[in-house]
Simulated assay, not measured.
Amino acid sequence: MPAAFNGKIDALFCENKADIFGNYREENNTITVALGEESDNTISLMNLAAIKTFLNGGDVYLLDKEDMPNPNSKLNALYRY
Rank of each mutant, 00 (worst) to 15 (best):
I20W: 02
N29Y: 07
N6P: 02
N56E: 08
E26F: 14
A3G: 04
T42F: 05
S39F: 09
Y79H: 01
F54N: 12
I31P: 08
S44L: 05
N28L: 06
L63R: 14
G58L: 07
A3Q: 07
G58W: 05
V60F: 06
P71M: 05
Y61T: 02
N23Y: 09
I9M: 00
Y79V: 00
F21H: 08
M68E: 09
L48D: 01
E38V: 03
Y81P: 07
S39H: 06
K65H: 10
L75V: 03
F5T: 03
R80P: 00
G7R: 02
I31N: 12
M1T: 06
Y79C: 00
L62C: 12
G22T: 01
L78R: 15
E37I: 11
R25Y: 13
N41R: 14
T53F: 07
P69Y: 09
R25K: 12
D64C: 09
M1N: 11
N47R: 14
K65E: 08
A50I: 02
N47Y: 12
K52W: 03
L48K: 05
N41G: 10
A4S: 07
D67A: 13
N6H: 06
L48V: 01
S73V: 13
N23I: 06
D19V: 02
D10Y: 11
N76D: 05
I31A: 01
G36T: 04
N41A: 11
N70L: 05
A77S: 08
P69K: 08
A3L: 09
L35Y: 15
G7V: 01
D67Y: 12
K65I: 04
L78W: 15
L63N: 11
F21R: 02
M46Q: 15
Y61D: 04
T42N: 01
T30Q: 13
N16C: 10
E26N: 09
N76R: 12
N23L: 07
K65G: 05
L45M: 08
K17M: 11
I20T: 03
N47T: 13
I31W: 10
N16E: 13
L35C: 13
N47W: 13
E66C: 12
P2V: 04
M46S: 13
E38N: 10
V60A: 06
G7C: 07
G7T: 02
L35G: 15
F54Q: 14
G36D: 06
T30P: 07
N23M: 06
I43Y: 07
N70V: 04
M68N: 11
F21Y: 03
V33N: 05
C14E: 14
F21L: 03
D64Q: 12
E27V: 11
E26W: 14
F21S: 01
T32H: 09
L35D: 14
N29W: 09
L55Q: 15
V60Y: 15
F13R: 03
I9C: 00
A18S: 13
N23K: 13
M46E: 03
A50T: 05
P69S: 01
L63S: 10
E27C: 09
N28M: 08
T42S: 04
T32F: 12
F13V: 00
E38G: 01
M1E: 03
D19Q: 05
G58M: 04
N41T: 10
E15V: 07
I43N: 06
N70Q: 12
Y24F: 06
R80K: 14
D40C: 06
G36E: 02
E27A: 11
V60C: 01
L62V: 15
N47E: 15
N76H: 00
L48P: 02
N56A: 06
E37H: 13
